[in-house]
Simulated assay, not measured.
Amino acid sequence: MTVNLQKGQKISLAKEAGGELARVTMGLGWDAKKSGGFFGFGARTETIDLDASCVLFDEQNRPVDVVWFRQLKSRDGSIVHTGDNRTGAGDGDDEQIIVDLSRVPAAVRSLVFTVNSFTGQSFAQVENAFCRLVDSASGREVARYDLSVQGAHTAQIMAKLYRHNGEWKMHAIGENGGGRTFDELLPQIAPHL
């Protein structure tokens, strides 16, 4: 059963998945709002390029690596981005970041997932946006977080996976921000580490 996360909620991945997870997929999905038209006729959809990123932090809360559309794989190979979707077209996940939790280096304490509007549109122009965590082995959705909070923000700190007492946990952060790429969110991420 999927846990529908609320902002600030924390869960144990092993408990929610019914056992230790080895590989997970963080999926990001969205649709661009249709605009204009008369009773739906002639409405157009703008292209909105949202980008998912994963920043790896060490015990001292310093960023040590990042996976995003310009670097699709972490240096150690434990985290892989499946590629950049520049429109949000289609159903399901538009972008995915696959994490082999068993291979994440011991020096990495947390993984922070962000979403940025690379084209600069605000989330007021986005609908049906979500991030979800899936058990890669079974394909079962473990947790889902709705990102479709409308507003003038162009970025969001979605969630954090972190080690606590030898197990992986998830924290739904859901904090709105600004910036076209993950690096503009780093000062805002710091208090959540």
Rank of each mutant, 00 (worst) to 15 (best):
G27C: 08
L101G: 07
D146K: 06
S102I: 03
G77Y: 11
W68H: 15
E20R: 15
I157Q: 10
Q121N: 10
D31L: 12
P105D: 00
I97A: 01
F130M: 01
N128S: 08
V115W: 08
Q150D: 13
A159M: 08
D31H: 14
K34M: 07
G37A: 09
T119A: 12
Y145D: 00
D84K: 09
L133V: 13
D91E: 12
N61F: 07
D94C: 14
Q156V: 14
G29E: 02
C131R: 00
T114W: 00
V24I: 15
S148T: 14
F41V: 09
D100A: 13
V99G: 02
F41L: 15
G18E: 06
T47A: 12
F118S: 04
A52P: 06
G83R: 05
A107F: 03
T82P: 00
F130W: 10
F57C: 06
D65W: 13
M26K: 09
P63G: 01
Y145W: 05
V115D: 01
T45R: 15
A52N: 12
V99I: 15
A32I: 03
S148K: 10
F39A: 12
L21W: 11
G19W: 09
F118W: 12
L111P: 08
R86V: 15
A124Q: 12
T119R: 14
G151W: 07
F113Y: 14
F113E: 00
S136N: 07
G40T: 04
